[in-house]
Write a protein that binds this DNA or RNA. Structure first.
Lengths: 343, 343
DNA sequence: CTGAAAGCGCTTACAG
DNA sequence: CTGAAAGCGCTTACAG
């Protein structure tokens, strides 16, 4: 492997000049610049990030920590973040806290701390005080996606508002018998987003003077199959069933739709279903939903990080940047919601 | 940040001893070891990976390159790989080649080459000769998942065999009118796995003396929605339709099932559908499939890498390891396949 | 604009 | 078992 010395030798300049020419920092004459570029090319030179990082303290490497990667939301956040980062010549290092606690501890105590990162993005993780403290102690920029962390830059959707908007939609269609399917924590996704969404649901019903039927407040494990079971039971109750259902995720809404169909209900005539997410399968199911664009959230988190690192061109990031930002969502009307059948 | 010097000072030993005590390399007296451990703990010391890597040449960081992360297969491979890696105290650096060619070039020419990685795993990527050459030139272990690369350690499923087995299943149920839904390259997933699967399909039909109907050889874009459209058209042909369909992915099989249902066909009486993948939604759809356990594949790739790095305890990795391994798959019989309705 | 030199924080022969 | 020292490959004041 050619080192910077080899390049310097070949270009007939010092290593300092090579470093400046290649990095773009500092003044270099056009002639030197070209000689260096040629020499580097001839030798197939690529700089050592380790050496560069050690010397400069910057590593062009961002860490992202999430409780799992295989679920829709996380996979899409990651897709957006990694594209945006690679685009900018940054590496993305992925940490997965799923599984045992020991695992999570290892991530926070060791991996994250080894000073190989310029900044970290946490997704949907509620950090413990020691964890937060630890992260802060390294003094690297930190952005929390999908949940508020004290004194941390946050990007999240407005769960309360989303849920109340969704509920208003159902109310405006004429529904009064409305059920809610929240999510039970399957893994350690720590934020109680279903909580904020439930609040929004109840608020909207209250505003409309509609009583909440506690029997119709369900939760499932965020999976389609889990939702299917719950909704099948809900709809099979001989003492009556709701005419509409708000699910806190599209994947659960799919299960709800399948359950309703399997019971012979016609949708949306007999039963309206509303999701939250903007999952691509929603179109096929005709699912009305509120899209939250997770890939764009991943990109936004990266953009925020770049500003914090001073790559955005902002003067004084700490002053000019909002600390807690609501990421815009989008109401998508399709065919799974309609006025309740007369009678 | 406490450095190794601080620890040495506090423990009353040299930095060399601290390094040896903490890394476990070389002999250290029990007393020194304990003094070091205490000092490190007191100071909250964590070593700098950059410095360590620079000095030792090993970075405890594995790169993984894939064409996208948000699709089922990739997200699950990643889930398995990252868990396994974090478990072993390794970092995982993720590279996404999706999007523009420029993007992909950047990954191979720059990011991957910066010597921050001990090894790399490529998923489903068919590398160009220059890319392969470049990767080889860094002399790091390389494992290809999901597709054979010349002279590279490979882990993949036996696509031909999977497809012929699946086809035999349909044949053994008595089907003779069997369609095939392959996958058109949506993004640059370079291996023509649908090719090998199509071959297996045709082989099995040939063995059973069943003619292939070229009209029933379809492909879609690997999405549920794409498959839905294709299958809807297929089944609406007034001149006759197949009684069974083999889809090269479960997600496409879901679309096929939804299309058949929407046309009023009863499943599996009127129409049998078979998938390949082992997607968790398969259970809800009652989908018969061949499961390929992508998370386990990700773990296997990591395990292979570890052997190549000599962490597995193997004597002579180069000699003892297979170069091309078929990852085991599993036939999962559910309710989407049955004998064709009489007449 | 340029170079010599110190320094980033480790690891590892080497000598004891 | 232990330490002094060289070296990993860069970056960056500093002086010119």
């Amino acid at each position: 492997m050619a080192s910077i010395k080899d390049v310097a030798l070949r270009a007939g300049v010092s290593v300092a000049t090579v470093s400046r020419a290649l990095s773009g920092n500092g003044k270099v004459s056009a002639a030197s610049r070209e000689a260096v570029a040629n020499a580097a090319k001839d030798l197939g030179y690529v700089l050592s990030y380790n050496a560069s990082s050690l010397a400069s303290g910057r590593s062009r490497n961002i860490g992202i920590v999430m409780p799992t990667v295989s679920r829709w939301y996380y996979a899409n956040v990651l897709q957006g973040a990694t594209q945006e980062l690679n685009e900018r010549g940054y590496d993305l290092t992925l940490y997965n806290t799923s599984g045992e606690q020991r695992h999570r501890d290892a991530v926070f105590q060791d991996l994250l701390m080894r000073q190989r990162l310029d900044a970290v993005i946490t997704v949907t993780l509620k950090l413990t005080d020691p964890e937060l403290h630890q992260l802060r102690s390294v003094g690297k920029p930190l952005v929390a996606l999908g949940g508020l962390l004290p004194e941390v830059q946050t990007i999240r959707v407005d769960d309360f508002n989303i849920a109340s908007l969704a509920t208003e939609h159902l109310v405006s269609l004429g529904h009064t018998d409305i059920a809610f399917l929240g999510g039970a924590d399957a893994f350690n996704v720590d934020f109680k987003l279903p909580g904020a969404r439930l609040d929004g649901f109840e608020y909207a019903l209250d505003q409309a003077d509609i009583a909440v039927n506690p029997q119709w407040l369900l939760d499932a494990d965020f999976t389609t199959a889990g939702a299917y079971q719950k909704v099948r039971s809900l709809l099979s109750n001989p003492r009556g069933r709701p005419t509409a259902l708000l699910c806190v995720s599209d994947e659960m809404a799919f299960g709800a739709i399948m359950a309703a169909r399997d019971l012979g209900l016609s949708l949306p005539g007999d039963f309206s279903v509303l999701g939250i997410d903007g999952h691509e399968l929603g179109e096929l199911f005709g699912l009305t939903t509120i899209a939250q664009h997770p890939a764009a959230q991943g990109e936004a988190a990266v953009a925020r990080i770049m500003e914090l690192l001073g790559e955005g061109g902002a003067e004084d990031p700490a002053q000019t940047l909002p600390v807690d930002e609501f990421f815009p969502t989008e109401f998508v009307l399709r065919t799974s919601t309609a006025p309740p059948a007369a009678g």
